[in-house]
Every structure is written in structure tokens, then in C-alpha cells.
């Protein structure tokens, strides 16, 4: 069910751990599976579990514990905005409000065209760059003043 390319990447992760500890690769494997599929359906999680020789429930436990895994479909771009205290002191909330108004959605909602899902994040570990946000778990955007957000949205839409 996962592509050969993803499985190859998972193999690379498995090789990092002792031969009898394949399960250690589950976090990376789930992240790779999500990258391929866009989100983690139960079948995808089960597929990862089978590949690593672990119980599907054990992989499901991991997928539900860590909040960067998406257990339901999200838009083409998932925007995660940090609103925690250090970010809020430097405009994090303002950025979140601006995005809500621009996109016409609240947190945990997806725009009607399926382009954007807005999420409220907890600390991303880059408070000095506040306001900060993440695009699709991978791309970190620092110092997101409103004009920067306009630029980012225009770039993602194009």
C-alpha cells in the first residue's frame, strides 16, 4: 500500500536501530507514510505496523500520541500557528486571527477549496522568531508579520 520509494526510506530508518528493535523506526515510518498519503488512515497505520512487525494497535497508539500526525484528511497545506505565551507576547495571536480572517476558517477547519487547514500549535521551539508557523510539518516560517503571511499564502496558492 505504501510506495516503493517510501518503503525504501523506511528501510533507511530501520537500519538506525539494533536488528531486534525495528519498532524504533515507527515514528519516522508513520511520518513518511503521512508524507506520501497526506494523512494517516487506519489502513495506512496498519500497513506501517505490519512492515515493522508490530501490533497495529501499538502503531496506532503512537499515531494518536504525537500531535503532528494527522488522523483525518487535511487541506493541501496545513498551517500550524504557535499561540503559546512567548509567541503571543510577540504577536502570535494576532497572526492566528489574521489567518482566520483571510482564510475564513477557524482552528481545525479546512477551507472549502481544500487548500488550507488551520491548526493551533503548541511550542515549536523557535520562540525568538515569533510569530512563527509551520507549513505541512516541514517548512518553518519565522517572523510572520501580516505582509509575510500575504506573501506566503499567495505563493502557496500559485
Amino acid at each position: 500500500m505504501l510506495s516503493q520509494e517510501t518503503l525504501k526510506k523506511i528501510d533507511r530508518e530501520i537500519a538506525k536501530y539494533p536488528a531486534d528493535q525495528k519498532q524504533s523506526a515507527v515514528m519516522a515510518a508513520l511520518a513518511l507514510a503521512q508524507e506520501e498519503k497526506g494523512w494517516l488512515a487506519q489502513e495506512t497505520i496498519a500497513c506501517v505496523a505490519e512492515y515493522l512487525g508490530m501490533a497495529p494497535m501499538a502503531a496506532y497508539e503512537v499515531a494518536t500520541f504525537y500531535n503532528m500526525y494527522d488522523l483525518a484528511p487535511v487541506g493541501k497545506y496545513k498551517l500550524t500557528v504557535c499561540t503559546n505565551l512567548p509567541c503571543a507576547l510577540s504577536g502570535g495571536v494576532h497572526v492566528a486571527d489574521y489567518l482566520k480572517q483571510k482564510l475564513g476558517v477557524d482552528f481545525n477547519e479546512t477551507t472549502a477549496d481544500g487548500m488550507f487547514t488551520l491548526k493551533e500549535g503548541e511550542c515549536l521551539g523557535v520562540c525568538g522568531d515569533a510569530p512563527v508557523m509551520l507549513v505541512n510539518n516541514r517548512r518553518l516560517c519565522s517572523y510572520m508579520a501580516t505582509e509575510e503571511i500575504d506573501k506566503l499564502l499567495a505563493e502557496l496558492k500559485s
Partner: peptide, 12 residues
């Protein structure tokens, strides 16, 4: 100050 409001999502 504007831009330094602290906020918690009401629906959570």
C-alpha cells in the same frame, strides 16, 4: 497592546 494579546481558543 495590540499584537501582544494572549489568547486561548474558545472551542477547545
Amino acid at each position: 497592546r495590540e499584537g501582544s494579546r494572549i489568547y486561548v481558543t474558545p472551542n477547545r
